[in-house]
Design a protein around this nucleic acid. Structure first.
Length: 578
RNA sequence: CGGGGUGUGGCGCAGUUGGUAGCGCGCCUGGUUUGGGACCAGGAGGUCGAAGGUUCGAGUCCUUUCACCCCGACCA
C-alpha cells in the first residue's frame, strides 16, 4: 500500500480531549474516527488491525472445534421475552419494528438466538458437545459511552455458545479458557483471569479476562501467593472474629445526640467501628421490595452480592421520605430491631439481608429507628432475625484472601469472558433439548464465551505505545514494514519502487511512504505514530552506501543492511530480526 | 437521571456594546527546499448544531430543541 493513496490521514496535533491514550493515538494516527458518541468509523488501517485480531481469534476457536456461523442481527423480540430479558438485560436493549409492526431487538448478545438455532435441529447426544461462534456487530444502548473503543454502543464481538451435557461442560469450559489464554498471548496482552458475576447473562459462575490497565473500568483483587483472583463484585475475604468471648448484655435504649454518619456513632459512644451496626436501606424497583442490608460497621455493602442474595435486579437507595413516612424509621438511626415487615403506606415487603460478619461481634450498637435514640447490646437472633444471611461484604485491598494471602487491588480492561450458563436458558426456553442414549429428551447444559474485538484492539494500544505513538505487536500490525523514501531523485525513487515490489512479492506487508514533497521528519513521525514494527529507509545516502537503514519500532539504533539481506530477512521470518 | 461544560470551513479555535465571518493547521496550484513535523506566493472551502422570536439588521439578545464532552449514578 502506498501512503499517497491511503485513505485516512495522520494528524500532527492530538486534537482530542481524551485522557485515554488508545483513543487519542488511534484517532490521531487515522485508525478510527468517531461518528456519534460510542459509534466509530474504522478506517482502512483500523479495519486491517481489527481483521488481524479476528483472524487470530478465529484460528483458536476453530482449533477447539467451535464452528463459525452468522446469526441475524435482528432478534425476534419474542425470544427475549421467552427468557425475560427484555427487562432484565443489564444494557438497554435497542428495539426496532418492521413495516408490519413485528418487533425486533438489535442483538446485544445472542444466547436466545443460539438456542433457537440449535432447537431447529434434531440434535443427538452423538453431536455433543457442540460449539458455535460468530463475529458480528453488537448493539448496546449504553448510558454512557467512554474512552474511545473501550466502551461503545456498537462493536464487533466474537460470541460463542456451547451445548452439551453437564458432565461434558467442565472440559468445554477449560478448552475456552485455554484458547483465550493462547489468543491473548498471541495478541501481546497479559491478562488476569478473574472470577466474576454473571449478571444479566445468567448462570452460576464466570470468568473475565482482564488486561491490567489504569484506564480500565474493572476493579479486581488478586492474592499473589495463591493466585486467587476475583472481580470486586464477587471477591470474598476472611472475616476475623471480634469479641465473641463477651457475655450477652441486655438491650438498652440510650439518648444519642449525634449526626447520621458511622463516625458520629463511634465518637458518641466511644466504641469501635466494628461493633456498630451498618444498616443500609435499598428499594428494588424490579420486585418492589425494600431490602435492608445489615453488616458489621467496618465493612461496606457489596451491592452485586446483595442483589444475588436478595434476588433483586434493580436496586436503588431508599429515599429519606420512604424511610420516615413508609417505614417509620429515621435516616442515620435505622435498626433491624423492630423494623417493620412492610411499608405502612405502600405495603411493599421488607427483606432483611444480613452479612455473615454479624456473627463475629456481640453487643453491637446502633440506631433505634428514632431520631437521637440509639440501642446498645444488639445481638443477632435474640433481638432481630434475618430473612437472608449471606456474604454481602465488599472486599478491599489489604484484606485477607480465602487462601490466606493479602488481597491486592488492580484495575483493568475486560477484554473477554467465559460464562457457565448451566440450564438457565434450557429451562427458560422450550425445546432446548437433545436426545440421549435412551432416546429421551434432555436439556442442554450451556456456556457462553465473548471477546470484544474493538476493546481488545484498544487494550493492545494501551499496553503497547510510547510517547511517539503506537507500537503494534507484529502479528496484528496493519503492515510489517514502513518503507520511507527520502528525497526525490530518480535513482532513489527507482530503488524504493524496486524494494517495495520485491518485498511485496515476497509476501511482506509494506506501507510505502511515496509521498512527494513530504519531508523526512514527517515520514519518520508518521512511521512512529502508526506503530509499524519496522522502518526501512531508502534515500540518496543509503543509495551511496549500497545499504539500507532498518530500524525496529521502539529500538534506539538502526541497522544497515544490504538489499538482499533486507529482502531475505523479511521473506523468511521477521521474528528473530534485530 | 443529577452536576458542570461545548457546538463557528476537514481538525483546533477567535469573534468586543448586535452592523458584509476570521486565525492556525490541513487541502489545492506554482516556486525554493529536503535525514526528525520547512519557507514564499496564490487559491478553494462555512445556511455559525436546529427551529422559532425580537430587530432596519442576529454568530452575538430571547425561547424551545438536538447533539457532544467531563464528573457522578449505572453498566462488558
Amino acid at each position: 500500500m502506498k501512503v499517497s493513496q491511503l485513505f485516512g490521514r495522520t494528524s500532527k496535533t492530538e486534537g482530542l480531549d481524551s485522557n485515554i491514550i488508545s483513543h487519542r493515538l488511534l484517532t490521531q494516527a487515522g485508525y478510527i474516527r468517531e461518528s456519534t458518541a460510542g459509534r466509530y468509523f474504522f478506517l482502512p488501517l483500523g479495519q486491517t488491525v481489527q481483521n488481524n485480531i479476528i483472524d487470530i481469534v478465529r484460528k483458536h476457536m476453530d482449533a477447539i472445534g467451535a464452528q463459525e456461523v452468522l446469526l441475524p442481527t435482528l432478534h425476534p423480540l419474542e425470544l427475549w421475552k421467552e427468557t425475560n430479558r427484555t427487562t432484565s438485560a443489564g444494557f438497554e436493549l435497542m428495539k426496532i419494528e418492521d413495516r408490519r409492526g413485528a418487533e425486533f431487538a438489535l442483538g446485544g448478545t445472542a444466547e436466545e438466538m443460539a438456542v433457537d438455532l440449535a432447537r431447529k435441529f434434531n440434535v443427538s447426544y452423538k453431536d455433543l458437545p457442540l460449539s458455535i461462534y460468530q463475529f458480528s456487530m453488537k448493539f448496546r444502548d449504553e448510558v454512557r459511552a467512554r474512552g474511545g473503543l473501550l466502551r461503545v454502543r456498537e462493536f464487533i464481538m466474537k460470541d460463542a455458545y456451547s451445548f452439551g451435557t453437564e458432565e461434558q461442560f467442565k472440559d468445554t469450559y477449560q478448552k475456552y479458557w485455554d484458547a483465550y489464554k493462547a489468543i491473548y498471548e498471541e495478541l501481546g496482552l497479559k491478562v488476569d483471569v478473574v472470577a466474576a458475576d454473571n449478571g444479566y447473562i445468567g448462570g452460576e459462575y464466570c470468568h473475565e479476562f482482564i488486561s491490567e490497565s489504569e484506564v480500565g473500568e474493572s476493579r479486581y483483587f488478586i492474592d499473589q501467593q495463591s493466585g486467587y483472583a476475583a472481580h470486586e463484585d464477587v471477591a470474598v475475604f476472611k472475616v476475623d472474629d471480634k469479641n465473641l468471648g463477651e457475655e450477652l448484655r441486655d438491650l438498652q435504649e440510650v439518648d444519642a445526640e449525634r449526626g447520621t454518619t458511622m463516625e458520629d456513632g463511634v465518637n458518641l459512644h466511644n466504641m469501635p467501628l466494628w461493633q456498630q451496626t451498618k444498616d443500609v436501606l435499598f428499594f428494588d424497583e424490579a420486585t418492589k421490595r425494600y431490602i435492608l442490608a445489615l453488616i458489621r460497621g467496618d465493612f461496606d455493602v457489596n451491592e452485586t452480592k446483595l442483589m444475588q442474595a436478595a434476588g433483586a435486579w434493580d436496586l436503588r437507595a431508599a429515599t429519606e421520605q420512604e424511610i420516615r413516612e413508609d417505614l417509620g424509621s429515621e435516616p442515620g438511626f435505622i435498626s433491624p430491631v423492630h423494623f417493620p415487615k412492610k411499608g405502612a403506606k405502600s405495603g411493599h415487603e421488607v427483606v432483611i439481608v444480613g452479612d455473615k460478619s454479624l456473627r463475629t461481634v456481640r453487643n453491637m450498637y446502633g440506631g433505634n429507628n428514632k431520631l437521637h435514640k440509639d440501642l446498645l447490646n444488639i445481638n443477632i437472633d435474640r433481638d432481630y432475625q434475618l430473612d437472608v444471611e449471606a456474604d454481602i461484604a465488599l472486599a478491599k485491598a489489604g484484606m485477607i484472601s480465602p487462601d490466606g494471602g493479602t488481597l491486592v487491588e488492580k484495575r483493568g480492561i475486560e477484554v473477554g469472558n467465559i460464562f457457565q450458563l448451566g440450564y438457565h436458558y434450557s429451562n427458560l426456553m422450550h425445546d432446548a433439548e437433545y436426545t440421549d442414549e435412551q432416546g429421551r429428551r434432555q436439556k442442554y447444559y450451556m456456556g457462553a464465551y465473548g471477546i470484544g474485538i474493538g476493546r481488545t484492539l484498544a487494550a493492545v494500544v494501551e499496553a503497547h505505545h510510547d510517547d511517539k505513538g503506537i507500537i503494534w505487536p507484529e502479528n496484528i500490525a496493519p503492515y510489517t514494514v514502513y518503507l520511507a523514501r527520502l528525497g526525490e531523485a530518480d535513482a532513489v525513487i527507482q530503488k524504493a519502487d524496486e524494494i517495495y515490489m520485491s518485498l511485496t512479492k515476497a509476501g511482506v506487508l509494506v506501507l510505502y511512504d511515496d509521498r512527494l514533497g513530504t519531508r523526512a521528519g514527517e515520514k519518520f513521525a508518521d512511521a512512529d505514530l502508526l506503530g509499524i514494527p519496522y522502518r526501512l529507509v531508502v534515500s540518496d545516502k543509503t543509495l551511496a552506501s549500497g545499504q539500507f537503514e532498518l530500524k525496529k519500532r521502539g529500538a534506539a539504533e538502526a541497522q544497515m543492511l544490504s538489499q538482499d539481506a533486507v529482502i531475505n530477512s523479511f521473506a523468511k521470518s521477521t521474528t528473530n530480526l534485530l
